[in-house]
């Protein structure tokens, strides 16, 4: 899952897709944690997943707000274009 997320992160140029792949990666990491916790039969894995969840939520909120601003400002969601343009 993580690899898939990494791949798509590198490939896609649309900003939204970038964010989505980030979510995928986070999720995959969380999955790994939960599996570990289940393996050792402790609650720790789930706790960490909870934190990851919180972080992802905050990040998505702020990130999407930023995306709106970028769109308004630059008029495009192309990551490469954003890199080249000067504000």
């Amino acid at each position: 899952m993580f690899s898939l997320g990494l791949t798509s992160l590198l490939v896609r140029r649309n900003l939204l897709f970038v964010l989505m792949s980030l979510e995928v990666m986070l999720n995959a990491a969380g999955l790994a944690f939960v599996v570990a916790g289940s393996r050792w039969q402790q609650a720790d894995g789930q706790v960490v997943f909870l934190f990851i969840l919180a972080v992802a939520a905050a990040e998505v909120a702020v990130g999407l707000a930023l995306v709106f601003q970028i769109y308004r400002h630059f008029g495009s969601l192309d990551v490469d274009k954003l890199g080249e343009m000067r504000g």
Partner: peptide, 9 residues
């Protein structure tokens, strides 16, 4: 390069 995806890669 200044390209974001390059840096990510």
């Amino acid at each position: 390069t200044g390209r974001v995806r390059w840096y990510m890669a």
